[in-house]
Write a protein that binds this DNA or RNA. Structure first.
Lengths: 199, 199
DNA sequence: GTCACCATACCGACCAGTCGGTATCCCACC
DNA sequence: GGTGGGATACCGACTGGTCGGTATGGTGAC
């Protein structure tokens, strides 16, 4: 902990402030000066902990991905039937995405502004996460629990599209709680995977 | 038509070039200088037709929204049963979104960079479009064709999330054609709306 | 003393938008 | 049918300002 005697360490505070500003005004429209002012320090402090502005983005992404990945692994390790595990995982990813809506929003809006190398790294991590999700779908398809006439990766992209879009419409003062949205989304996903589709 | 004796009018050419560059590198990372150089003119020419860089974005959005809206209206005017109309509309919006993936990508990534007034205008147009889609879902719910235990607007946001996310994974050299993706997406949507869900 | 931590001053690059000017087209009018 | 003059289309140099990043200096802890 440095001289700034706040309860939170400076790097974390900088990340929190940057996340909020990025989500509000966008990465490119937020200057480093604004970030450090909102955090009550100067640029020297920020560049002591982060080599570049891009590092802030990178950190925000990785923090979010790490959390989601850990939760998914815990859920997948359960012994329930596939449909139950997928439902739990789907609802959970919605709830955590809403709980960290700023991070998720920034992720979507600004990933393309990173350098190609960094983009590759982030995409790889994201891809690995999706693979795990997909394996759940495939497991259910092999077992006959889910319909098999639709590609598993398409289903995953379909569902995560909906998740990524949450920031565009979800409001915490709206009619639905995060849990309700999670349950509905998971219901829709499971329902669309039931066998014997219509003509 | 101006002096530049090309087949295309300059404003359209500028829009096309800008769309491609915005989709490739992002709105903020694309300078006006790059746009006009790629179009073979100078800045004076661009500012003769567009008052500001933002106007390019605005035009791209409105062009896309206008097209999608016209197509949706034509489909909704049909006399087929609700499920059939919704399926057609859903598949169609996927196909046209893929056919104009650059526009759709730019739309998503850069809408938040517009001025608040412009954002409101775009959101209002988008909202109106979603309303029409939602009315289809509600019609089916009233008729008992679709399950009624899930809010119609949530279903619409769910589906359009998936549509908006197409640019993140769809590749024209992939295994699936746009039509196939459209059919799959529409199948998933209709399937998730079937009544009598699991426990 | 030295090292982590942070402030301050400053640099070089870039960029949206402006503005005076020029070339070309259109058309009324003789 | 030429001609004058205004409108349209476009050029390109310039500017005011911003921004990411750096270099240097100070200061307290151990």
């Amino acid at each position: 902990m440095g001289r700034t005697g706040d309860g939170e360490a400076l790097p974390q505070r900088l990340l929190a402030v940057a996340t909020r500003l990025f989500a509000e005004k966008g990465f490119e429209k937020t200057s480093v000066q604004e970030i450090v002012e909102a955090a009550g320090v100067t640029k020297g402090a920020m560049y002591h902990y982060f080599a570049a502005k891009d590092d802030l983005l990178q950190e925000i992404y990785q923090r979010l991905l790490r959390m989601q990945r850990e939760r998914l692994e815990a859920i997948m390790a359960g012994a329930q039937p596939v449909a139950r595990r997928l439902h739990t995982a789907a609802a959970d990813v919605v709830v955590t995405a809403i709980a960290n809506l700023d991070d998720a929003t920034v992720f979507l809006q600004s990933m393309h502004l990173l350098s190609p190398d960094r983009q590759r790294a982030v995409r790889a991590a994201r891809r690995e996460y999706h693979e795990r999700f997909r394996s759940l779908v495939e497991e259910g398809q092999r077992a006959g629990t889910f319909r098999g006439d639709v590609p598993a990766d398409l289903v995953v992209d379909y569902f995560f599209g909906a998740v990524h879009h949450l920031g565009a419409w979800f409001r915490s003062d709206g009619r639905l709680t995060p849990q309700q949205v999670g349950t509905h989304f998971a219901d829709l996903l499971l329902s669309s995977l039931r066998p014997e589709p219509g003509p």
